[in-house]
Write a protein that binds this DNA or RNA. Sequence first.
DNA 1: TCCATCTATTGAAGATCGTCAATACGATGA
DNA 2: TCATCGTATTGACGATCTTCAATAGATGGA
Lengths: 141, 141
Amino acid sequence: MTTTRADRLPAPPEGTAAEDCGAASGGALLALDAAERLAEVAKALADPTRIRLVAYVAAVEGGTVCACHLPAELGISQPTLSHHLRRLVDAGVLERAQRGRWAHYAVVDEALAPFAAFVTAPAGVAPTAGCGPAGCGPAAC
Amino acid sequence: MTTTRADRLPAPPEGTAAEDCGAASGGALLALDAAERLAEVAKALADPTRIRLVAYVAAVEGGTVCACHLPAELGISQPTLSHHLRRLVDAGVLERAQRGRWAHYAVVDEALAPFAAFVTAPAGVAPTAGCGPAGCGPAAC
DNA sequence: TCCATCTATTGAAGATCGTCAATACGATGA
DNA sequence: TCATCGTATTGACGATCTTCAATAGATGGA
């Protein structure tokens, strides 16, 4: 049973372990639908190739993504590139404009903003912290 | 072939499409290892249950996560909860301290910071934008 | 009209993931 | 010492994901 850096965690005050479990009885977790939306963005980014694509699109003026060389640079095939771009568009992370033969992409900041807020301050998106029925936790469960 | 909101993307200037492809010849993508590290955090968060767990841990004073009620509240079994917590710890998103029978968790801000920076400003983590060999892009490829 | 280019889709295969039942392990209290 | 509690691990199953070969579709130029 592995233990990480225990010293990093504040020790709960003596005799208050049960209450430390959560301030409010019936404390709520983040709503499932909100969590699912955040998880969709995370899933879209849960691949190094897609991370690189988003970084690339964000950095390129005008957002043209050239399939002609990206597959070689990314070490993937053209259909795989198309698949990843599709995944990013489906998740709303990128948006796509077709101009003639060429597809142009842009990062959708509005799609990333809630996720950025979440990873910057995870507690900020949770409703009242709590851990269930009153009296839950060490010494009480 | 779906088209998203084309008007959101700036049209490249006339006659500059090729150059729009990227400013620097041999333009680099984000390094693969950097992308893999970012993708690891995204993978850890690519599940609504783990999103809720991280939000919960961040919100709870002292970070005690009570398995006694969380499975029911999350709609999962105790082994699945344990699995998810393990995934988050392995990814470095959470850290864990065992105190007697009880496990205490805390969010590792340092692990989330690079990812937060990435989703806040994806272009900021890419090296010089570019799209490969000089002259790449519409009209040049 | 035909050909080239850029991109998307389909199908398949292997890998990974989320889930739970069963079980195991360590800590604690009687 | 034994029972209970909180948590972890194992194994298995179904679902999802990543990949590429083959192919298709749209656009543009000759």
